[in-house]
Design a protein around this nucleic acid. Sequence first.
DNA 1: CCACTAGCCCGCCATA
DNA 2: TTTATGGCGGGCTAGT
Length: 336
Amino acid sequence: MKALTTAVIGLPVSGTSTIFSILDILSSVGRDWEMLHGAPPQPKTFIPTLLSNDGLAYCDINGRKITPDASIKEMPSPDLIIVPDLHLAPGEPMPEEFGPVTQWIKLAHADGAIISSVCSGAVLLAAAGLLDDKEATTHWGFSDALSTLFPRVKVRKERILIPTGEGHRIITAGGASSWGDLMLYLINRFSGPEEARRIAKVYLLEPHLSGQLCFASLTGNRQHEDNVVRDAQVWAAEHYSDTSPVSAMASRSGLSERGFLRRFKRATGQSPSEYIQTLRVEEAKQLLETTNLSVDEIADEVGYSEPSSLRSAFRKNVGLSARDYRRRWSGLTMAG
DNA sequence: CCACTAGCCCGCCATA
DNA sequence: TTTATGGCGGGCTAGT
């Protein structure tokens, strides 16, 4: 199986630690597969390369000397491009060095490449015109600057990861540890969930907190045009704790139960009941994080008459028990 | 942990 | 012909 040639963009304003974390992680995808599974790698692997405008060594923002592998001209058409976070002061004009790499990204995308960005790296994608009239995310401190510079971009700063465009070939990541979320998303998408879980363990990435959303975004959470389904989703956001919300959604929609199910699944990728369960578990996560309510009380709150129902649904969706989830979360906040 | 049931999913075919 | 929908029935599983 063909490995994905992957270009990571290095500019003097790029975040060096992000770049090297990404290079390390992608290099190790599939590496121990044969040892672990006793068979040659089934999933796709990545061949990451650090590219700069001219391929010559440069000094990053902290004065550290970085030596790229090649220039962008030497790799006109990679399978995947990753633009890491850029240290830009909001409101500053775009540096001149963005010109060539922006043009290169534009051509590569037209050629079929998948383009992704971390945090403020989204400006390069926006400058290339890839984000016009599309949803995108960036670092929360940078979202105003992005929408000012590029008014056509629909900035969703609350989102961690947004795949968009034809074939989801444009992916923007924003927020605190979003490069990790981007890694897990890409590995999950191209190498499968098994390998994504392994990498998450090895590199101590946290797929259960923010990363959970990026796994969900593969199937759920996608944008769609079906207003009937959207209405149902809006209604469900308020009424997920009702008893048998699915048949209520169906009858409210005016469609037959059969038709509603089909429409819903096509639009969201999830069945209505899976969607309801996701809402219930998400709300339970919120309550575990922000309140001292017992798991039993939370179960009742989100619509389960038996606490055991929440426990099993939680474990299935999150991969942890509710109790462990709360403990892990409080541990993280204590640590800062 | 297990058994029961309502609620839900989906293949299939007819319809428009 | 292709595409979206509704009805039926059997089977599954989330929830009790």
